[in-house]
Simulated scan of single mutants.
Amino acid sequence: MSLPADPSRPGCAARTLVAIVNYRTAPLVVACLRSLATEDPLGAGCFRVLVVDNASGDGSAAHLRQAIADEGWEAWAEVRETPRNGGFSYGNNVAVREALRWPQVPDQIWLLNPDTVVQPGAVAALVGFLERHPRAGIVGSGIDNDDGQSWPYAFRFPSIASEFENGVRLGLVTRLLRSRLVARRMGPQAETADWVSGASMVVRREVFEQVGLMDEGYFLYYEETDFCRRARRAGWEVWYEPAARVMHIAGQSTGVTGRQTVIPRRPAYWFESRRRYFVKHHGRAYGALADLAWILGFSIWRLRRRLQRKEDTDPPRMLGDFIAHSVLWRPRWKPEVDAESGLARVNR
């Protein structure tokens, strides 16, 4: 049985679309769907799930369809396949475009990572929050690590000051620039923020209708920062709601972050997404200054690390790769995605 493009069913108009973008993480998606199944998707506040398989090429789509059939989730979950791995924004936009064409358009769209497990009551908490706060266009959930520890962060927009602090890693500088740090530790109550993690982010339908879809020029990373900035510029509020809990296994869907034994080299798309963000929202001159601030700070840190014989926890070739992708001289770049690894690459 296949879910039709019009998801309306007797007694249940989908108020929420859950969009999950998969790339070779089918077992994690099944675990995520299993956690969503306990949220009573066909109840009064029902939701639908579209899993977008970004051309995994490893049988993920068939695996997911079989799991959905075996578990009896066909009434509320379905898989879409894309012809290419176009990145996080691209995959989410496939689901959002379809939902915006439904006769009964969902009230909100929940962008949810495949490497997440939804805790009980999260759907009701997020949907209820938007109902109580009409100017809230985006709300992010509280995040728990896979060891059960809370990860209580939302974010400020990046700046020249935050780039220097991020590079130099000196306690005195961090204290002096406390109000400019990107990562902002949040309290136990709901608060506004500049942007929230795209691992679990609910967007009101009207935001997409007003500001457009996510920018597919970002292959991965900075796309949620960009989207939240566009929403705030249009007058919408961005909130962090810790009452809704989602467990996130960091790095499982990207391989960039997480607790790896061997720290991988930072992929090209991370640098290019960062570059795109600064140039798009601040211009090339500001972007160049932000690059210089990070390069200066990071160079100081590397020298201090050697003198103090501190452990090297940086990705290999980080400084050289950063400089190679700098706003200072990199031309506009379109990601070429490696078919085997799924990572963007640059022809040097």
Rank of each mutant, 00 (worst) to 15 (best):
P264W: 00
E216K: 06
D58T: 05
G45T: 00
L36S: 07
E241L: 14
D312T: 04
R65K: 05
W333H: 11
A5E: 10
G87L: 08
A14H: 04
K310Q: 12
V173S: 07
G148Y: 03
E223R: 05
A69N: 00
D6C: 14
M1S: 13
A67V: 03
R156N: 14
F155C: 08
S273K: 04
S253T: 01
G217L: 07
R169V: 06
E336S: 11
V94F: 15
A125D: 09
F227A: 08
E209M: 13
R169S: 02
G198A: 09
L220T: 00
G283V: 08
Y269R: 01
F322C: 04
P106R: 04
V246Q: 04
A13I: 13
V18F: 06
A67S: 07
R284G: 02
P41S: 06
L50R: 05
P134L: 13
G255R: 11
S200M: 11
D312Q: 10
F157K: 02
R233L: 14
L17I: 15
R259A: 12
R80I: 14
I263P: 00
S141T: 15
G235T: 03
H248Q: 04
V202S: 04
P4Y: 11
E78R: 14
Q308H: 13
F47E: 12
E272F: 08
L172T: 09
V173D: 02
D58P: 05
E272T: 04
V202I: 15
A290S: 13
L64T: 04
A124N: 06
F129H: 13
P331K: 03
D115I: 09
S159F: 10
G287E: 05
